[in-house]
Design a protein around this nucleic acid. Structure first.
Lengths: 63, 63
DNA sequence: ACAAAAAGTAAAGTATACTTTACATTGATG
DNA sequence: CATCAATGTAAAGTATACTTTACTTTTTGT
C-alpha cells in the first residue's frame, strides 16, 4: 500500500500536529503513516479522506 | 462504522468460505466483520471492494 | 425427517495499529 | 550562528485485527 499523505498535507499547508489533532490521533501516528511504517485503520483512512476532501482511493493505493 | 458486507455477499451469491478465500483471509474474519465485531483493515477493505466491484464508501460507512 | 452445508460462537494466540514519552535532526528566521 | 518550530527516530505499552481450532445452531436439499 502506498499513500500520498505527506503530499496532501503539504498541499493543505498543515503541520503533522495540526493534522493529528484534526483527525483525532497522535502526531506519531501521522509520522508512521507518512513514513509508510504501517497503514491506517479503515476508520482513520475515512477521517483523513474527509479532512482533505478526497476519496480514500485518491490517498491510498493497493499494490 | 456500519457495513453492508452480508448484503453484498448475498447479492453475489457467495458463501463466507468462498469470500474469505477470494480476499485471502480466514472465514472467521468474514464472520466477525459481518457481525460488526470489528472493522477490516484498510487493505482488506480494498480487497472486499474490488471483489464486489464497488467503492469502499459503498460498503462501509462512518458514523 | 435426515444429512450435509453454511453460518454462528468462543477462546487462546499472533500481528499490526496506535499511544505516550523522550530525545535527535533538520529547516526557517532573527 | 543561535534559536525555535517542525520533523524524525526509538522503545515500551495497549488496543484492535486476524488466525486457528473446535464445537453448536441454522439452513437447504432430497
Amino acid at each position: 500500500m502506498i499513500n500520498r499523505l505527506k503530499e496532501l498535507r503539504a498541499r493543505h499547508d498543515m503541520t503533522q500536529e495540526e493534522l493529528a489533532e484534526k483527525v483525532g490521533v497522535s502526531r506519531q501516528t501521522i509520522v508512521a503513516i507518512e513514513k509508510q511504517k504501517y497503514d491506517p485503520s479503515l476508520s482513520l483512512a475515512f477521517k483523513l479522506a474527509k479532512c482533505f476532501g478526497a476519496r480514500i482511493e485518491d490517498i491510498f493505493e493497493e499494490e
